[in-house]
Design a protein around this nucleic acid. Sequence first.
DNA 1: TTGCTGACCGACG
DNA 2: CCGTCGGCCAGCA
Length: 109
Amino acid sequence: MTALSFFERVYDVVKLIPYGRVTSYGAIATYLGTAGSSRMVGWAMNSSHTHSDDIPAHRVVNRVGVLTGKNHFGGSDVMQELLEAEGVQVDNDQVAHFEKVFWDPGREL
DNA sequence: TTGCTGACCGACG
DNA sequence: CCGTCGGCCAGCA
């Protein structure tokens, strides 16, 4: 609806993720209307580090709650640390009680 | 301009 | 249960 790029839209949704909540790439993709292009969401995250805005990419995980992008986040377990710091329990690179902390943009917005 | 790659997802064997 | 493949679209060499 706007001239915003696909990435811009992704960033906007990610920044809307409430504190202590996480979402999945597919959920964002579906919300944007580009269901199936979930890879683009992850790609946007990859470019998010080049973006000057604060993108809480650590709140975005795959559909099973696994921190797939933790390798790209900084090369360390920073992603897990950030999530735990927000109250999100993480176990072995996987979000515990994922269904409880899961935030679906298409459902809650 | 063409082609490869990519932090995913779902289906198939 | 696990490994493999295709599809989706945008950025970069």
